[in-house]
Nucleic acid binder design. Structure first.
Length: 264
DNA sequence: CTCCAGGTTCTGC
DNA sequence: GCAGAACATGGA
C-alpha cells in the first residue's frame, strides 16, 4: 500500500460513517470505498494508507489541502458544538465526485441511510462497471431507464434520476460559480431542493458555508438554540449560516452525527 | 401490521 | 412566499 501524511486531526471512521458518503465497507482495520474507482484505505493515526488510486486522487478526495484544524477552531462557538467537535474529533469533509454526489443525494430524499446505500449499490450493479473489488459508479451522462431504476428500488425517485441528463460540462461549470448561483442551477433539476443542493455543494464542491438542514439538524438546532420551539427550515438554515459563519457546513456535519448518535 | 427514514413537488391561499 | 398532503420501499 502507498501512504500519505494527513496534515490535520483525522478520524477515518467518523469521516466515512457520518453520512456524507454511502458506498463504503469495513475491511480489516480500514475501509473499502466504492466510487468511480474502488480503493482501500487505512489510517494509523498519522499516515493514510491506500491502494488502487493515485496520490493526487487521494489528496483531493480526503481534502488533504484543507486546514481542518483551523476550521474546527473557527466553528468552536459554544459548548454545544464543542461537545460534538470533541466527540467526533477528526471528522472532516470529503471532496466527492459531483455527479455521484448528485445521484446519491437525490436518492436520499425521504429515505434512510441503509436503503440509500442499497439503492445506490443496485444502480451500480445495473449501470456501473464490474471490477475485482466491486461495481463502480456509472459515468456521468448515462441513459437511465425508469423500469430498471424501479427494479433498483428507487420508488418515486426513479423519475428524477431518469430525468437527470446533465452533462459532465454542467457539473464542471458549477465549480466556477458563486455558491448561491450554483445552488439555483442545481435546484433547477427535478428532485433537488434546498437541502439536497446544499449537500452537493458541501460534499462535492467544498462550499463549506452552506448549512444542510434536514430533520436531524432541524431537531437539534431547535433543541439547542431555540429552546425547543419549532422553527421553519429556512430559519434554521439562516441561523446556521449566520451563527457558524463561513464553515457552517462543517459544523452541521458534526451536529448531524452528534444528534444521530445522541451525544448532544 | 404499523411506523418511519439526511425532502421535494404540487396545490391552494 | 408559506403551510399541507402525497410520495415508494425496506427494515425495525
Amino acid at each position: 500500500m502507498n501512504k500519505i501524511k494527513v496534515p490535520f486531526k483525522f478520524n477515518l471512521e467518523y469521516t466515512l460513517e457520518s453520512g456524507q458518503i454511502f458506498r463504503i465497507s469495513k475491511i480489516n482495520d480500514g475501509y473499502r470505498i466504492f466510487s468511480n474507482a474502488i480503493f482501500d484505505v487505512y489510517f494509523d493515526g498519522k499516515y493514510l494508507y491506500y491502494n488502487n488510486a493515485d496520490e493526487n486522487y487521494i489528496k483531493r478526495f480526503f481534502s488533504l489541502d484543507i486546514d481542518f484544524d483551523k476550521i474546527v477552531k473557527e466553528i468552536s462557538k459554544d459548548t454545544h458544538i464543542t461537545t460534538a467537535l470533541k466527540a467526533f474529533e477528526g471528522l472532516i469533509i470529503l471532496t466527492q465526485d459531483p455527479y455521484e454526489t448528485t445521484v446519491s443525494f437525490i436518492c436520499s430524499a425521504f429515505n434512510n441511510i441503509k436503503r440509500i446505500r442499497l439503492m445506490l449499490d443496485r444502480i451500480c450493479m445495473e449501470y456501473g462497471n464490474q471490477t475485482e473489488l466491486g461495481y463502480t459508479f456509472p459515468a456521468c451522462g448515462i441513459d437511465f431507464d425508469e423500469n430498471k431504476l424501479q427494479k433498483c428500488g428507487l420508488g418515486f425517485r426513479k423519475k428524477y434520476i431518469a430525468q437527470l441528463k446533465k452533462s459532465r460540462e454542467f457539473f464542471y461549470y458549477l465549480y466556477n460559480l458563486d455558491t448561491n448561483f450554483a445552488k439555483k442551477e442545481l435546484m433547477g433539476i427535478k428532485g433537488i431542493g434546498s437541502k439536497v443542493a446544499d449537500c452537493i455543494l458541501l460534499f462535492a464542491y467544498r462550499r463549506y458555508e452552506v448549512f444542510c438542514t434536514d430533520v436531524w439538524i432541524k431537531r437539534i438546532i431547535e433543541k439547542l438554540y431555540f429552546n425547543n420551539i419549532k422553527q421553519s427550515v429556512r430559519i434554521i438554515e439562516e441561523f446556521g449560516k449566520d451563527y457558524f459563519g463561513e464553515y457552517a457546513g462543517v459544523a452541521q456535519q458534526y451536529l448531524f452525527l452528534a444528534a444521530k448518535k445522541g451525544v448532544i
